[in-house]
Design a protein around this nucleic acid. Structure first.
Lengths: 236, 236
DNA sequence: TTCATTGCTTGATAATTGTCAAGCAATCGA
DNA sequence: TCGATTGCTTGACAATTATCAAGCAATGAA
């Protein structure tokens, strides 16, 4: 079930900005201590509060990061190949703040946290790459928080649609990248309200058919959504 | 108005975890390029979207970080001495995501961002300290986001009171550290609703007189608030 | 002191969002 | 093919939160 990572996976991981600058021997020693595990769908691989034993890298499939409190649950992010998660907890050797579950069958690389911390101390290029990555993550969360605090659910949905459209190919139609119920949770609303929100965007030229979204009046939607690079551009 | 930083300020800044490990000459060269500026109250010193020209350090006074969109405004955090802000934007050389205004008369140290980035590249101990700091900041924002998405406004207020009580001295009474209207904005609610929320906590043994909060039934409040270290403990 | 300002509170009302229950369509395994 | 499950939608209703208007108490300047 949990195997040493095959060398064929090294290049994909090496290409990540996080690892691309580190010294060869440090990278190799990280990889040699790493595992790869194949998870079935809907498996909770991490529970919030757990110690962060491994830095995780999604190689294939997808992973939902979510949080719970007092019987409630909310989705925080979806992680897709190829990227890492649980970096901050690994660095600080602190408990994970989020739980993680596979959304589909997924291959995950597991790099022991103590190896990451050792590499972080030994390799200053790696340390610098981690800084850049963490600063990026931090800014992303701040943007999400602005989205949550400054916008109504209808506005959040409208802007999500515009972001997603850009991420697809910029064309008028695209498919939602995950279930609507997860989208609802991510946007901080109930599935019932998401359903109504989609209807609420019809007057602005949005039509929905299953997972397919079509934007018939781009400018109407943009006028309503008022997207801002300081909230919606997650690349800076 | 903007002066070179006097050497008498060096020790306070040097004590910050961020700078404590860096090589003497690197620290000195950062400091020699830095300024200190005294701001009157209620001055907007940074507007979101501005380039991040300086890493800021609050020496005295206090600063509110806030965001705006479409005519709305929300408070994100209050920065108190001695601590830095605008670190992530400085590192990434990206526009500030938040605006900053003084809440009271404040002395702020301004360290040119390019100097910080140079030091970050030259001094690997500094780079490592930045990692730790950013990981901490990231985790704090995640906690705030969990608070926002998983709790009602009454629950957020109850937990805020418990956190604040701990931060004071753990006694039954303490003073709010800022205006109620700012607290309302920070907690993601209107001032009117904050007023009602305080009343809503009376049955759990909370009484309010001006800025003075008194917890008469600690256990009742805790039973209602259900604080969790994974949301409310901002030290890990 | 007196008056204006400011911040907070209160009440009435409206908008938003959540909950519960039911129904429908698509999917899947027996 | 059938029945069961799953995810989404809809409607009715309830809870939460926001808005608007007014009032009150503390503060500060003339």
């Amino acid at each position: 079930m949990r195997k040493e990572m095959p060398e064929s996976d090294y290049p994909d991981i090496r290409e990540l900005h996080l690892f691309s600058d580190m010294a060869h021997e440090n990278f190799m020693s990280l990889m040699r201590g790493a595992y790869v595990q194949a998870f079935p769908p809907q498996i909770e691989m991490i529970t919030e509060g757990d110690p962060s034993d491994f830095l995780h890298v999604v190689l294939t499939g997808s992973v939902d990061l979510f949080c719970s409190w007092n019987g409630r649950e909310t989705s925080m992010a979806t992680v897709r190949p190829i990227s890492t998660f649980i970096l901050a907890a690994t660095i600080r050797d602190a408990p994970n703040l989020m739980s993680a579950r596979t959304l589909e069958k997924s291959r995950i690389a597991l790099i022991p946290s103590q190896d990451v911390r050792a590499a972080f101390n030994a390799d200053s290029d790696f340390a610098r790459a981690i800084v850049t990555e963490l600063a990026q993550c931090y800014r992303s969360v701040i943007k999400t928080q602005k989205d949550l605090k400054l916008r109504t659910s209808l506005e959040r949905l409208a802007n999500f649609i515009l972001r997603q459209q850009k991420r697809a190919d910029g064309g008028a139609g695209f498919d939602l990248p995950f279930e609507k119920r997860r989208l609802a949770s991510f946007l901080g609303m109930t599935p019932e309200n998401l359903s109504r929100a989609f209807k609420g965007l019809q007057p602005y030229g949005v039509s929905v058919n299953g997972t397919r979204i079509t934007i018939k009046e781009q400018s109407d939607l943009e006028t309503f959504a008022k997207p801002s690079p300081l909230i919606d551009d997650h690349s800076t």
